[in-house]
Design a protein around this nucleic acid. Structure first.
Lengths: 222, 222
DNA sequence: TTTGCGAGCAAGCGTCCGTTTGTTTCCGGC
DNA sequence: GCCGGAAACAAACGGACGCTTGCTCGCAAA
């Protein structure tokens, strides 16, 4: 049967799009796939979306707004940089694990957006990263954190969150709380340890000599 | 003019493919694009490649083999876990920055490969990660490293390398050697610091309650 | 001088793409 | 009972897409 889906159809399209963009990528996902998943013919999709790209854009912008809101809420009431950083890291990792598909789409499909829409997403992302970085810098300013590169530390948090979203499974050997806590431990240990390691030698020179010297020109991620 | 390209055509195709797969993605790259970039008509590509997917596969497998070879070479002569881990981290980051385009392709286009070819790539990747993890575990066994989660630490290295390849530019404020060294510092500080941080509260519970409870099912990266 | 072949070309194959159009169907409010 | 609109449908648009075919050209070995 499957006659009128009512107002649920729009949400079903959205969910099917998240699943399929995640699994096969935006370019490889056809509207016919989506329609089939929802149980509708392809033309009917246009009763609920205005274009394929707009559908992608709405998914990407929503997840970033949710991430920002989640961080704001989690940080409420915490004042010490160590505490605030731990809260931010755990929140970041938990969100990325929970919303893995959308997060993955957001990180990999920026290039499929037209420049104006891409700019909107990048702005949202930069605002979030700036907020995390501010926490790190406050810890540095207060003398709590010894690690001297707040920008790199922030990037490390972002990188780990993205990576967790690609491998974490609820039925794995570690719970999400354990993963988030362990990574917060790792990063806070790094921030708090005043010791400086000594580089052993010329590793980099050797690697540099070996690889193609053509400089990276542009990131697909903007 | 542009008559016979000789044996240089094959290499030009490969380079054009790397650039275009990186910039627009495998699915969004057409053989007509590639041919145009090389200065040849589309049919002529098939004098040098057997299929579009085979071209992608050869790019992905080569970069992984090169990464493995680079790590093996860099580790020669180092024995202490701290030194070996630093060497591995710096090598990993430097390689990822130098071969950013291919690395990005390798991380994002696994899903575009047929299952048998994908399995080959995954095997190469797992072997590499296993080798890094072994270094971490040796440091733990010898009592040099205090951080209790070697698997997570290894993932952190991989995550940071991948992320560096997405933002590093030779004309940035930090040189590649500085970035690699700073990240090695960060990770070794974390490994060496015996302090354990105390979690401040129920951050995770709050985040969990908020987000969609649908469990991740499958990664596009296998 | 002849000949074999690598490497180019134009043309077209069948298929699928995102999107549009015109029409039908069903349901809630009158 | 009827009517307006939301939402489904079938069909088709023009234009890619990856890949194949049949052919030509020009260099190099014979």
């Amino acid at each position: 049967m499957a006659t009128r889906g009512g107002p649920k159809t729009a949400e079903a399209i959205r969910q099917a799009a998240i699943d399929s963009f995640f699994l096969h990528g935006y370019e490889a996902t056809t509207l016919r796939d989506l329609a089939g998943e929802v149980g509708v013919k392809v033309g009917s999709l246009y009763n609920h979306i205005s274009s394929k790209e707009e559908l992608l854009f709405s998914i990407m912008s929503e997840v970033l707004r949710d991430l920002q809101a989640e961080l704001d809420r989690a940080l409420e009431g915490w004042t010490a940089p160590s505490e605030r950083l731990r809260v931010a890291i755990e929140c970041h990792i938990a969100f990325h694990a929970h919303r893995a598909k959308e997060v993955f789409i957001g990180n990999s499909e920026l290039r499929s957006l037209a420049p104006d829409r891409r700019a909107v997403i990048i702005e949202l992302r930069d605002a979030y990263e700036h907020q995390v970085r501010t926490i790190v810098e406050e810890g540095q300013a207060s003398g709590e954190f010894y690690y001297p590169e707040p920008r790199l530390a922030t990037f490390a948090i972002v990188a780990i969150g993205t990576h967790v979203s690609s491998w974490y499974r609820p039925d794995g050997s570690l719970s999400l709380a354990e993963v988030a806590s362990a990574y917060a431990d790792l990063l806070l240990r790094a921030m708090h340890n005043p010791e400086v390691q000594v580089a052993p030698g010329d590793v980099l020179a050797a690697v540099e000599a070996d690889n193609a010297p053509d400089a990276p020109e542009a990131a697909p991620a903007g």
